[in-house]
Structures are given as structure tokens and as C-alpha cells.
């Protein structure tokens, strides 16, 4: 069944790879501000993934909430706690 034949599968793999890379990097980074930014990038790649699966409403929410506002909230919080994670 070729529902998403309008997207190259190479592009698909690239986006999925970037999602995993961003998730792992966001967890591994010691600097909380960098971690918050990477998490925003993760949300943005998820947004592309949702669009590709034709769930445009979800993609819109992910872009606005995940990549937009929650990054700002994380940044605002990160500046108030110790900036570097302990472990």
C-alpha cells in the first residue's frame, strides 16, 4: 500500500534518524540551555514527521507548543536552576 509515495523514503529515514539523534543528544548534553535548544530541534523534526504522515493538525500543535513555547519555558527555567546537570 503506497499511501505516502509522495515522500522519498530516503527523506523519511533522514528525518527519523535526526529525531533519534536529537533525542539522544538532548539527554546527553550537560548544559541545560543547549539541551533545551536540542529538544526544540527534536520537536521540530517530530513536526516534520507528523506532516509527512498527513496529520497536519498534530504537526501544527507540535510546532507551536513543542518547538515554540515549551523551548522558551525550558530556557526560562534553565537559567534559574544550576545551569549544568550533575551526572
Amino acid at each position: 500500500m503506497e499511501v505516502n509515495s509522495w515522500v522519498l523514503w530516503q527523506f523519511d529515514v533522514l528525518i527519523l534518524l535526526m529525531v533519534v539523534v536529537c533525542a539522544v543528544v538532548a539527554l546527553q548534553l550537560k548544559d541545560l540551555v543547549s539541551s533545551a535548544i536540542t529538544f526544540g530541534a527534536y520537536s521540530f523534526f517530530m513536526c516534520i514527521l507528523w506532516t509527512e504522515m498527513l496529520a497536519v493538525d498534530v504537526a501544527f500543535t507540535e510546532a507551536a507548543v513543542g518547538a515554540g513555547v515549551s523551548t522558551i519555558l525550558f530556557l526560562g527555567t534553565a537559567l534559574h536552576v544550576k545551569r549544568r546537570a550533575k551526572d
Binding site: 507551536a64 515554540g68 513555547v69 522558551i72
Partner: peptide, 8 residues
């Protein structure tokens, strides 16, 4: 979505 954009 509109609310989040407006809040932003």
C-alpha cells in the same frame, strides 16, 4: 494552536 501563538 491559536492560543499558543497568541501567548507567544
Amino acid at each position: 494552536q491559536g492560543g499558543v501563538i497568541s501567548g507567544a
